[in-house]
Design a binder for these strands. Sequence first.
DNA 1: AGACTTTTAAATGTCAGACAAATAAAATCT
DNA 2: AGATTTTATTTGTCTGACATTTAAAAGTCT
Lengths: 243, 243
Amino acid sequence: MKIDPQNPADLSAQIAHAIREAIVSGALIVDERLPSEAELADQFQVSRPTVREALKRLAAQSLIRTQRGATGGAFVNRLSFEDAYSQQITTSTLLLSMNAVSFDTACEARYALERACAALSAERRTADQLATMRAEIFRQSQPGLTDEAFCASDVAFHRALVDGAGNPVLSYQLAGAVEAMQPLMNMITFTARSREEIIALHSKIANALEARDAATVDATLAKLETYTRQLAMDVAEQRRRPA
Amino acid sequence: MKIDPQNPADLSAQIAHAIREAIVSGALIVDERLPSEAELADQFQVSRPTVREALKRLAAQSLIRTQRGATGGAFVNRLSFEDAYSQQITTSTLLLSMNAVSFDTACEARYALERACAALSAERRTADQLATMRAEIFRQSQPGLTDEAFCASDVAFHRALVDGAGNPVLSYQLAGAVEAMQPLMNMITFTARSREEIIALHSKIANALEARDAATVDATLAKLETYTRQLAMDVAEQRRRPA
DNA sequence: AGACTTTTAAATGTCAGACAAATAAAATCT
DNA sequence: AGATTTTATTTGTCTGACATTTAAAAGTCT
């Protein structure tokens, strides 16, 4: 079932790969217990530390969870949306921060995806989600708000909009894009004037969602995208010639 | 810089977390070498195996790479799009296969995202990407094609469409959704009649992209979505009452 | 002197055995 | 029978050692 070639390189990676394949292919089902570390070591003819390194690799991807004690061991993990979110966010953040993805490219992708949710959200949004958006808009209009708090509220607003589509897969996909951009957004929304503009657009989106007017939501998101990218360009321009 | 509380639970996870934060926050930059395992063990006041488990966790997420030899060690990895793709695909596949995400939900999300790319792709697609789509359509019309090969070609077609948007972030986001659904798609496109229908819609999409007609691309993708979900429902129906 | 070979040192990869801690089942006692 | 203690199993961690890889330093030969 899970054998291991005799080439001596990176045994723990090979073992992790074998077990991962077994999980993804369905040979190991959710909540099934893996053999104990000692048994796995015996089975793969390696030492226990090597097995442990392999298991830690899988734990890092939330593929297994471990439990100590008599009936403990490593169990195939049911991947929760929360786990998937956080992995997606980590990956997206790293891609943005160190792979030469421009803010413009990230912004375009983010709004393209968000507009994809708009039609569904106009159709399905609950009163609860609408109330969340209104509450966040109110928070954004408070005077003493820090840039970080404003952007956190911005994320929460957009999160509610996306969740309105009622499709957890879309929510999961967008969580990365929206949250990964937050640090970059922090740097471009620092003037009162730009906050006012953003809040006005947010209000328009909430109103359109309340009226289940998908076209207006889409058009307003397009405006928000244009405005955000314009702000980013202005900031970049100011950086280039600080005089 | 990276300290460690004295609570005794899961030291390797804590160390991995500390180093991950240092990387994500930018305290450790790309290609920078981490201290050696022995030095880290000393620094965190733990043993080398514990440090190694932590490093393997990070390696599993492609955050670091290790190199043996005199000038070897653990280096902060520049996350490549390929690495991000494969992680995205693994995560999405697991979400679909074991988290009670229905085919319908996944399908809706996938086409919503794909239609988000349609407008951009109509504007920017290259002649090369158009040629790829035509070639895949031709392959799909070959008589002796297996279901797996047909679906692989289907994935390649849609991949070319998404890549046409010229936004690597969108490509990365959609790679997971499209590829993770392939095993499920394999099961529903097995009749000649359904293949014909799909090929016709693919041709219509390619033609519209050639004419840079975003509205038709969008409308045709909507038809393809409806048709795919209908096929899936029929298959589910047949499964329910096999007589 | 220059090119090739050998040695050496540093680092990761692996192993073996041991103990600690947690946990649930089994055994024991009241 | 119920509560308590014991015990066995399993993961978490430590110590120390050896193997392997790699590049630089040292040495050797032409």
